[in-house]
């Protein structure tokens, strides 16, 4: 009996530990949400001094907050679109085609993920600025950098989905006289689509969040993380927590609707 009781406790210890770790991971998010309602007593105060709706009403009040946010969203959408497209094509090549040089292609995809951001950022800067042409830095250099570091993550994510796909489904379609084009659009693509969506979501969050690489290659432009960085040196406007909260809620809504959608599809079949 003690053995069984011991095992029961053992099992739940793991669960309790796991939940505690999860709490550790979520506490800063709670703080961000709380601080979005903070009414700071002074510019440099980062303690909760009082409740207010003001930060939510005047999100754009701090100089450059909304323009930097707009820039981050623009870069995020554009870089996500390009990285998702190029990465998805690459993952199909890697998972579905045989060719010489796969090993080098694999290495080429893996290496950027294994390079610290500061090194990626400095090598791009060395390329762009090379010998004193700092004028090129701006929107397009940020965009190039973001596509670069999102690309590998897209390939890995979509490839994992492709690898988990039962090849017999496609064979069945072909057996039923679907041509390659029909098979792709009716069978393969819908099955891989959740992977592509996940990759796009990951890309966007990587792009929106990046500071280290962007900061080196942005020139005069200011993205949202760069705005936060600058603000952190002067005194943090509580409005950045509003943006953090909104991002969090929107992302949760997207994930939740994805979950509901897949559940509904599962019910239908």
């Amino acid at each position: 009996m003690t053995g069984r009781a011991g095992r029961w406790v053992g099992e739940h210890v793991v669960l309790v530990l796991g939940l505690l770790v999860l709490l550790y991971m979520c506490i800063p998010v709670f703080v961000v949400i709380l601080m979005s309602f903070n009414d700071p007593a002074s510019r440099n105060s980062y303690t909760f001094d009082g409740f207010t709706w003001n930060n939510w009403r005047n999100v754009c009040e701090p100089y450059q907050l909304c323009s930097s946010l707009a820039l981050s969203l623009r870069v995020g959408f554009l870089a996500t679109a390009v990285a998702t497209l190029l990465g998805t094509l690459m993952s199909f090549a890697m998972a579905r085609h045989r060719f010489r040089g796969r090993a080098s292609a694999n290495l080429l995809i893996f290496l950027p993920m294994a390079t610290p951001e500061i090194v990626l950022g400095s090598s791009l800067l060395a390329l762009f600025v090379g010998n004193g042409a700092a004028g090129v830095l701006g929107f397009w250099t940020i965009f190039i950098a973001h596509v670069l570091f999102c690309l590998s993550f897209v390939v890995v994510t979509v490839k994992a989905r492709l690898a988990g796909l039962d090849p017999r489904l496609e064979q069945a379609a072909m057996d039923l006289y679907a041509n390659e084009w029909q098979t792709f659009w009716r069978i393969t693509f819908p099955l891989v689509f959740p992977g592509i969506l996940a990759a796009a979501l990951l890309s966007f969050s990587l792009s929106f969040d990046d500071f280290i690489i962007t900061n080196l290659n942005a020139g005069q432009e200011v993205t949202f993380p760069m705005f936060v960085w600058g603000a952190a040196q002067r005194g943090i406007p509580p409005q950045i927590n509003v943006v953090g909260t909104v991002m969090f809620v929107v992302a949760l809504a997207i994930v939740a609707s994805g979950q509901l959608g897949s559940r509904r599809r599962a019910v239908r079949t």
Binding site: P28, V32, Y46, I236, M247, F248
Partner: peptide, 14 residues
């Protein structure tokens, strides 16, 4: 995954 979506810097400031 959720904390990912609140900006890295904002969370570190938290």
């Amino acid at each position: 995954v959720a904390p990912f979506f609140t900006s890295f810097l904002v969370r570190t400031l938290a």
